[in-house]
């Protein structure tokens, strides 16, 4: 077994690109679900419209990179309105079904042959990240030290990604300490009570949906820019489910919960992958072949999600008394 590689990939996963974009998606879900109690199962659609907004603006229309970012953000806000207006008056489980359906609609349209000339079908779009790397301040070369070393492109994506995470966390921190955040948390507890105290619950839910959608959609940009491409199937429902797992892992309704959760999630995934692949190749494990290692990791994600909800719903660092997701 190659311990060097396992160690290096695992450490890289703690701060890597996957961690960054999943953390951003999870920060959005934390606002929706952790603080406001909105079961938005369509988070992947926010990432998708942002990523595609950027990609299509740059590659198909031929506009500059920054306008693409603008288009992506506007698309995320519009999606929040489209999702929110029909559903925010409904009960939580209806909201879950509608948002997951909406996310599937978005994905199916992006991957359709019908709109292939715009969205590129199942291959997606590539070649829109040039504008981003043109302003890369890192000179060509390798940065960091063993086992953490990155090339200049990775450094640039990670720098921007972690700055975005820091900003998002700061925003969440400030808001959730404020009376605005208090209203959200109260809505999570009992929206009728909040209504009886003169707060416009619908408006706050909408604000929450937009904020979580916009912060989450940054993950779509990061994914698109890091890989230089967007594909429809990256933004499927499982992405949303993994982000939920991350939120619960790190602790719902905690500012750094999603970030810590994302880090742990990817470290575990990469570590398990490394160990199992190594064990299979060196013949230690014989009941599995190498192609089954990948699915096995996600089977563990499912198992982990069940066990977390049952035994530690407050997350690994959470305090049971402050458990935000509840027993309603």
């Amino acid at each position: 077994m190659n311990w060097d590689i396992i160690l290096s990939t695992t450490l890289k996963a703690a701060i890597g690109v996957e961690t960054v974009w999943y953390a951003l998606a999870a920060i959005g879900i934390n606002i929706h679900f952790g603080y406001t109690g909105l079961l938005n199962f369509g988070q992947s659609a926010f990432l998708a419209v942002a990523g595609y907004g950027l990609a299509v603006t740059v590659t198909v229309i031929g506009l500059p990179f920054w306008i693409g970012i603008g288009v992506g953000l506007v698309a995320a806000v519009l999606l929040a309105f489209l999702l929110g207006i029909p559903t925010l008056r409904l009960r939580a489980d209806y909201l879950a079904i509608v948002t997951i359906a909406a996310a599937e609609i978005v994905r199916l349209i992006f991957r359709s042959v019908e709109f292939k000339s715009v969205f590129g079908g199942s291959d997606g779009r590539r070649g829109f990240s040039q504008g981003f790397y043109e302003i890369n301040p890192y000179a060509e070369g390798t940065y960091g030290f063993w086992p953490l070393s990155f090339n200049e492109r990775e450094m640039w994506v990670l720098t921007v990604g972690w700055v975005l995470i820091a900003i998002a966390c700061l925003i969440v921190f400030l808001l959730m300490k404020s009376p605005w955040g208090r209203v959200l948390k109260a809505i999570r507890e009992d929206e009728d009570a909040v209504r009886s105290l003169g707060k416009n619950v619908f408006s706050y839910k909408m604000q929450s949906l937009i904020l979580g959608g916009v912060l989450g959609c940054l993950g779509g940009f990061v994914y698109g820019l890091a890989t230089g491409s967007v594909q429809p199937d990256i933004f499927g429902t499982e992405t949303t489910f993994f982000a939920y797992t991350i939120v619960i892992l790190g602790g719902a309704a905690r500012v750094f919960g999603p970030v810590v959760g994302a880090s742990i999630f990817w470290v575990l995934l990469v570590l398990v992958n490394g160990l199992l692949s190594g064990a299979v190749q060196s013949g230690v494990i014989t009941f599995m072949d190498i192609t089954q290692v990948g699915p096995f990791r996600f089977l563990l994600v499912g198992l982990g999600l069940i066990l977390l909800l049952v035994y530690r719903p407050q997350g690994i660092f959470g305090d049971k008394r402050e458990l935000a997701i509840n027993a309603r």
Partner: peptide, 27 residues
């Protein structure tokens, strides 16, 4: 309808009207 996972004080504060901090940007 006590808001269980808010403190008693937070429950009370929520009742006040015209709070500036309940506006997103000012928050």
């Amino acid at each position: 309808k006590a808001l269980s996972r808010l403190t008693v004080l937070e429950n009370m504060r929520l009742g006040a009207q015209g709070q500036k901090g309940e506006n997103f940007w000012r928050a």
